[in-house]
Every structure is written in C-alpha cells, then in structure tokens.
C-alpha cells in the first residue's frame, strides 16, 4: 500500500470581506497517494483551481488542514515548510503568461537550480538544464537553451514550464489545466510525457481539468474527483466513474458532453435538469448545492441538509442523499 502523500482535510476557502464574500471551496477532503494521479474535474467556477493552489501551498485554506506526508503544512517549522515547497511544484495553464519573456530558457531553468544550490557552477547548471530539456522531449537541447519564450510554440513553452517544475526534483506536481491551451493535435504527446514522469521519477499528480475526456485518458488507472460549485460531489476510480456514475451531477455531465464520434454522441440518452442556471457563488442554494437542478431532488431533504461525502465501497465516495 502506497503512502499518503497529500491530504486535504475538510478544507474551505473564502475570498473577499464584509458583505461581498465568495465561498470558493467548502468542506473538501481528498487524499492522494504516492505515485498516484488524481484528476480534479469540474466546470469553470467550481473551485478546482483554488483547491489546486491550496494543495500546492500557494493559498492558505480558511478552514481545515493540508497534510504533506502526514504533517500539517501550515503548522510546519520554517525549514520543514521549505522542504514541502520544494517537493511541490505547479504547472500553470497559460504557457504564454507563465514564462518570463525577457529570460532565455536557460535562465528560466537555471534560476531554481542555483537558488536551491542544486548545482555549484554555471557549467553544471547548463548541463543539468540540457538534461531537463531532454526529459521533456525538447531535443536537441542546444537548440532551445538560448531561445526566448516568444521563439517557441505553445506546446514547446508548456514543455519548458514542465521542465522548470522538474528542476527541484518535486515529488508532487499540480498541473492546472496544463494542456487546455495546447492545440489538440499535440496534446496527446504532452500527456504522454507527463505520464512518463510519473513512471520514471515517481511524480505524483494532481491534474486539474474541465475536460472529462482528457481526465479519463490521463487517469485511466487512477482516480477522478468531481467538483460542483465549491464542493466535492464524487470521487471514484476512473473506469467506474465513467461507466457507472453515482451522483446525479456526474450523470448529467457525462450524458451532456458531446463526443467526437457521430454515432456515439447522437445516441446518448438525455437527462432533463430542473433548471438551466448555475447557482452564483455569492448566493449559494441551501442544502445540497445541486438541488435546484437535480432531477432526483426530494423536497424537505435535499434543500435542507447538505450531504456529506461518504464512502460507498470500492474506493468510491459520493455526496448525495439519494445514493447509499
């Protein structure tokens, strides 16, 4: 049994102050084991990025604890915290914004190496940078080291972002929509490269995406967690989640997604929702957050009481009154 690497324990996060408060994440718990992949799936505004930033230690949760190898991150000693920060890296969505346009690839990659004393001199740094570029399939590295980000394509930039994350030998990478801005024709090779990192270097992934098809592909032997307006609705091993979703929201999502296959997509069953509007985070519905739209809504239960995320066997968790 693999060790638990990261644990989010009933975390919540509120933004803003006074009357304008946004509850971005509410009561979310999840566990990621070493060398595992967890795909966090949800629509825009569901709190998946906030959750990712909390897991990466970039945001402090308003409530709850973040545990790294069993230790509470926000109660750590300074030295311990630095070790955690080094072990966790993030790859951002937009490769056009996440690389400094005035720095060459070499400078981008060597900065963390020198900062953390992982290399002793410039010659060693250059050698290490070249190795990193080879890992992310930018070969021959000599062609790329002295280039500026604007001279690279979107896919190449994203590879540089990944290489930068790898400089400090992280054990955990948060990939926040890391391939969403990349053209479809080259996405698959980036995904392949990321899965290879897991196999070769034992990197654990929190892979955040709005695209369920992508999540399914990347985490086929792992786990998918589905979020809806700030709360976790379902966590399950990927094949089970796809074949037999339990939460009504996951079910609605799966049948609503158009597929790149005309027969398949035109013969999908339909689920009719009670409302088409996504609730506003400023004015959340009472009880279960999906109840105003849920086809299996029960009056007096779903609108009164928020369901807890409970285990239902086979490593599955669901937050719904109607399942169990």
């Amino acid at each position: 049994m693999a060790e638990k690497l990261i644990e989010l324990d009933h975390i919540g996060r509120t933004f803003g102050q006074g009357k304008q408060k946004v509850r971005a994440v509410d009561n979310v718990s999840l566990t990621i084991k070493e060398r595992d992949i967890l795909c966090l799936v949800g629509e825009s505004g569901c709190g998946k990025t906030t959750t990712g930033r909390i897991a990466a230690g970039l945001l402090r949760p308003s409530e709850g604890r973040v545990l790294f190898q069993g230790q509470d991150v926000w109660a750590m000693e300074r030295k311990e915290f630095k070790r955690y920060r080094k072990a966790v890296q993030i790859v951002h969505q937009d490769p056009y914004a996440s690389l400094n346009p005035t720095h060459t690839v070499y400078k981008i990659l060597s900065a963390p190496l020198l900062r953390h004393n992982l290399v002793t001199n410039a010659r060693e740094a250059r050698l290490k940078c070249a190795q990193l570029l080879e890992i992310v399939d930018l070969t021959p590295p000599g062609d790329f080291l002295d280039k500026y980000p604007h001279q690279l394509s979107g896919g190449q930039r994203q590879r540089v972002s990944v290489a930068r994350a790898l400089t400090v030998n992280p054990s955990f990478i948060v990939a926040d929509e890391a391939v969403s801005m990349i053209d479809v024709s080259i996405r698959a090779s980036l995904l392949g490269m990321l899965s290879r990192l897991r196999e070769q270097f034992g990197v654990t992934f929190l892979f955040i995406t709005h695209d369920l098809a992508l999540a399914k592909h990347f985490a086929w032997e792992h786990t998918i967690a589905v979020m809806y307006v700030g709360s976790m609705v379902e966590i399950a091993p990927t094949p089970q989640l796809i074949d037999e979703p339990l939460h009504p929201y996951t079910q609605a999502l799966l049948v609503a997604i158009p597929e790149a296959d005309p027969h398949l997509t035109r013969n999908k069953p339909r689920v009719s929702l009670r409302s088409m509007d996504v609730p506003s985070l400023l004015n959340l519905p009472s009880g279960c957050r999906f109840h105003p739209r849920c086809p299996r809504f029960v009056e007096g239960l779903c609108d009164q009481q928020a369901p807890d995320l409970v285990p239902v066997g086979d490593g599955r968790y669901v937050a719904c009154h109607r399942v169990s």
Partner: peptide
C-alpha cells in the same frame, strides 16, 4: 490525426 488525438468520454 485530429480524430486520433481526441479522446471520447464514454
């Protein structure tokens, strides 16, 4: 190539 690059959900 495009068709082979896009996964389906179900």
């Amino acid at each position: 190539g495009l068709i082979k690059a896009v996964p389906t959900v179900t």
